[in-house]
Each structure stands twice: as structure tokens, then as C-alpha cells.
Simulated scan of single mutants.
Amino acid sequence: MLEVEHRPSDSPYVERVWRGRTALAGHMTSVATSNWELTVWTHHGRVHVAARGPETAASVAEVPENSDSFGISFSHGTSMPHLPLSRLVDTQLDSPHVSARTFALRGEEWPLPHYDNAEQFVARLVRAGVLVHDPLVAETVAGETPQVGARSVQRRVAATTGLTRGAIQRIERARQAAILLGEGMAPLDVTHRLGYFDQPHLARSLRRFIGRTATRLRRGDTAEPLSLLYKTTS
């Protein structure tokens, strides 16, 4: 069984903070996400840390038994200058040195963050120049019209997210569709509300990005849990 707790953040660098625990081994469907994250997990007494990039398609992930995990999901526009996000898309980079209390990042030793001090940890990374934030990217992804040229916007979005603006929009729309279907909304209503061409278009998007059909999402199929989905304020 997978138990997950999550919360939003008031930091412009952070999208969401989450933590989870599993008792039994199994599998989960890791849905597509346009955000990257720093993840810490403990299994059999050993601590692991990794930077996980955006995921452009749903996949099946193993869930180890008796494991604890924690993650900081970063906002659009937040990036690490020393590690281009394009290198992290659909993959992860493990920290080369991790102990019970510290891990290595950018060749330096940092204390392990946890659920309750995530924002303080991020602020420390910002002060050290490990993390930077481009507010134009966040505004553009949120649908605002930038005051710079289209090419500049494309370049800055790609540099800080590893994705194109179109890819981000397609992923976020599919995630929103999954939430609405899970709440019981009819597929035809979801199609119209989110601007899909038709129901087959919605179905293809769900298969690619969520790994579920509309029927399974409405039924609340729990045989194989989904990774974190949540409503946003936008």
C-alpha cells in the first residue's frame, strides 16, 4: 500500500512538497509531469538522493516494500545552472555520495532536507547559487503573455524546464483531465472543458500521459496506484 501526503508551498521556487511510505512491494503508474524534483528515499536502512527530471509519458514504476520517500517538486522556471534540465528529461541523476545525514550536490556536501524544512533548504540552495528562478517562464506557462519575443521565450522555457511550452501544456492538460474524470465528470464534458478536439483525442492523451483510460479513472481503479496528481490554483 502506498500512502502519500503533500502540500503546496509559498516559495516561488517550489511547486509542491510530498512524502510517502510503502509497506508492501508492488507497482505504480508514474504519470507524466512537467516539473523536476529532488527526491530522497530510504530502503533497507540505506538513504538515496536523486534529481528526477520531467517525465514526458506515463510508465510503470516499482514500489519497494517498507520504504520512506520525500520530494521537493520545483516550479516552472526553477533550475540548476550546473545541471541543464535537458539532461534530466525522462531520467534521474543520483547523488554520488549520500550518508544518513548528508548528500553531495554540485560537488558540495548538504544536509538532507525533510518534509518540514523543505523551503528553508531551498532558500539555502538559492543563496549558494545552486538554484535560480526565471519568473518569465512561470508566467508564460501559466498563460500570461510575455513582453519579449517568441524565440526568447522558447529558449528560456527550454533552458529552465527541459521541455517546450507546448509539451508542458499537453502534459498539464492531461493531468487536469485525469483529475476531473476522477471526480466523476463525463468524458465528453472534459473534452469540451479542456479544449480537446474530440473524445478520441482525449483518450490518446490519457493513454500517453496518464497510462489510464477515462473509464478506469472514473471508476477509481486502485489496483495499481497513480503517482501524485493534484489540483492547482490556475
Rank of each mutant, 00 (worst) to 15 (best):
G77M: 14
S152F: 15
R52S: 00
F197T: 08
V137G: 09
P54N: 13
R219T: 15
E172Y: 06
V190D: 04
E3Q: 05
V190A: 15
G211M: 00
H201E: 13
N35K: 11
G149A: 13
R155S: 15
P146L: 00
A142M: 15
R52L: 04
V14K: 08
F74E: 01
A25N: 07
S227Q: 10
L228S: 14
A58F: 13
P96Q: 04
R156W: 09
L202P: 01
S9C: 12
P200Y: 08
G182L: 03
M185W: 15
L229Q: 01
S9D: 04
A158S: 13
Q199F: 11
T102S: 14
M80G: 00
Y115P: 06
A50I: 04
D221E: 15
E172Q: 06
T56Y: 10
D68Q: 09
G107F: 06
V157E: 02
V157N: 02
G53Q: 06
R193I: 14
V98W: 00
T233A: 13
V17D: 05
A100V: 15
S67E: 11
V4Q: 14
A138N: 06
M185K: 04
G182Q: 14
T222C: 09
V126A: 01
E172K: 08
A123Q: 04
L2N: 12
S79C: 09
R193G: 14
L105N: 11
A203K: 11
L24Q: 07
V157C: 08
Y115G: 10
S152P: 10
W41H: 03
L206Y: 00
A58W: 04
P64W: 15
R16F: 13
P111M: 08
T232V: 14
N117K: 06
T160K: 01
S75V: 12
A118D: 01
R219Y: 15
Q154A: 12
R52D: 00
S11L: 05
T42K: 03
H82M: 12
A159Q: 09
G220H: 11
R212S: 05
T102M: 11
A214K: 02
T145S: 12
T29H: 12
V63F: 06
T222I: 07
L188M: 13
A100F: 10
R219M: 08
H114S: 05
F209D: 12
G143K: 14
S79I: 00
T42P: 01
Y13K: 05
D221W: 12
G149T: 13
R165C: 13
E144H: 05
L83D: 01
D221G: 06
Y196N: 05
W18T: 10
A150R: 03
I210D: 02
T140H: 09
E62K: 08
V122E: 15
V148K: 12
